[in-house]
């Protein structure tokens, strides 16, 4: 079973995403900000990360840059999932090492399409 770390400061979003990803056979872990996520990744790298942008303590883009510097941190497939949907944010995410990008609001179809785009399902 593949693991996915859901990183979002909204418990509601984490719950919705968890439901969708569990249906896609992922084992789920959750983090409420980038710092928490980074610590969880240091302990054990997940196969995938679903990543919000704007969060307290450490935001998504800073988390991603830090993750890619970690030993083994190139491995997880990172899918941004955010309300930021202008080209400059998307480009910034890609150059920081994101693999795909979901623009909120999302649904199960979009998550499934994007995860299969990057070979996760």
């Amino acid at each position: 079973m593949k693991t996915c770390l859901i990183v979002d400061d909204s418990r509601l979003i984490r719950r919705v995403a968890r439901g969708i990803l569990e249906d896609l056979q992922f084992q789920i872990r959750e983090a409420g900000n980038g710092q928490d996520a980074l610590e969880q990744c240091r302990a054990e790298m997940p196969d995938a990360v679903l990543l919000d942008w704007n969060m307290p303590v450490m935001n998504g883009i800073d988390f991603l840059r830090a993750l890619r510097q970690e030993p083994g941190g190139q491995a997880p497939t990172v899918v941004f999932c955010t309300t930021e949907c202008d080209m400059s944010h998307i480009t910034e995410a890609l150059s920081a090492g994101a693999n795909e990008y979901v623009m909120k609001p999302f649904d199960g179809d979009i998550i499934e399409a994007k995860f299969s785009e990057v070979g996760l399902v």
Partner: peptide, 20 residues
């Protein structure tokens, strides 16, 4: 729409071939 470009289009293609 945002919805349409998320059906089947890789994000790299959105950046390369579309404008906001």
């Amino acid at each position: 729409s945002k919805f349409e470009v998320q059906r089947g289009l890789p994000i790299t293609h959105l950046v390369k071939y579309f404008e906001p």
